[in-house]
Amino acid sequence: DLSGKLIIKAQLGEDIRRIPIHNEDITYDELVLMMQRVFRGKLLSNDEVTIKYKDEDGDLITIFDSSDLSFAIQCSRILKLTLFVNG
Rank of each mutant, 00 (worst) to 15 (best):
N23G: 14
D29K: 10
N86K: 10
F39P: 01
I19D: 00
G87D: 11
F71C: 10
I21F: 07
L12V: 02
T27V: 02
I7L: 13
R77W: 03
L31K: 01
V32K: 12
I63W: 02
D55L: 08
L33S: 10
D29P: 09
K5Q: 05
S3H: 08
D57F: 13
P20N: 11
L43S: 02
R37L: 08
N46E: 14
R18F: 15
T50K: 08
Y28K: 06
V38F: 05
L43K: 03
Q74S: 07
I19W: 04
S66P: 00
I19C: 06
D59R: 15
D65L: 00
F84G: 08
I63T: 00
M35F: 06
M34N: 09
E24H: 07
F71M: 14
V32S: 04
Q36I: 08
L81W: 00
M35Y: 01
V38K: 03
S76E: 06
R17N: 05
G58N: 09
V85T: 10
D1G: 06
L79T: 14
N46L: 05
I16Q: 10
S67N: 14
D68V: 08
L79Q: 06
L6I: 12
Y53V: 04
L31G: 00
L79N: 10
K54E: 14
G58E: 05
K42G: 05
I16C: 15
Y28N: 00
F71I: 15
I61K: 15
N23D: 11
N86I: 06
D47G: 14
K80A: 14
D59T: 14
V85S: 05
K42H: 08
Y53S: 03
D57N: 15
I19V: 11
R77H: 07
I61F: 06
M35A: 05
G41C: 04
F84W: 07
L43V: 07
N86Q: 13
F64L: 09
L12I: 05
G58I: 00
R40D: 13
N46F: 13
L69I: 06
L44F: 08
Y53R: 12
N86F: 03
A72Q: 05
L12K: 01
S3T: 08
K52V: 10
T82P: 02
K54N: 14
L60R: 03
R18M: 11
L12W: 04
L81S: 01
L81Q: 02
V32R: 06
D25F: 09
E24S: 11
L33V: 14
D1S: 05
L43P: 02
A10E: 03
I63M: 10
I61S: 11
Y28V: 03
P20K: 11
M35I: 14
E14Q: 09
G13Y: 06
S70T: 10
F39T: 01
I7D: 07
G41A: 08
I8W: 03
D1L: 05
E30T: 08
N86L: 04
T50I: 05
M34T: 10
E14R: 11
T62N: 13
F84Q: 12
Y53W: 05
L44I: 04
D55W: 02
K9E: 15
Y53Q: 04
R17A: 13
T82F: 12
L83R: 02
D59K: 15
A72S: 02
R37M: 08
L69V: 10
Q11W: 02
A10Q: 02
L83I: 10
I63Q: 00
I21S: 05
L31W: 03
R40M: 08
G41N: 06
G13E: 06
R18T: 15
K42Q: 08
L60E: 08
E24A: 11
L33I: 10
R37W: 04
D29C: 07
D55R: 15
Y28L: 07
I73K: 08
L81R: 01
G87F: 13
Y53E: 02
I26T: 04
I7F: 08
E56C: 09
D29R: 06
S66K: 03
I19F: 04
Q74F: 03
E30Q: 11
F71D: 15
V38A: 14
D57Q: 14
L60T: 13
I73V: 09
P20Q: 13
D55C: 13
L6F: 10
T82G: 03
R40P: 14
R18G: 14
N46V: 11
V85F: 03
N23C: 06
E30P: 00
N23V: 09
G41Y: 07
I19T: 02
I7T: 09
T62V: 02
I51P: 00
L6P: 09
G87H: 12
F71H: 12
R37Q: 13
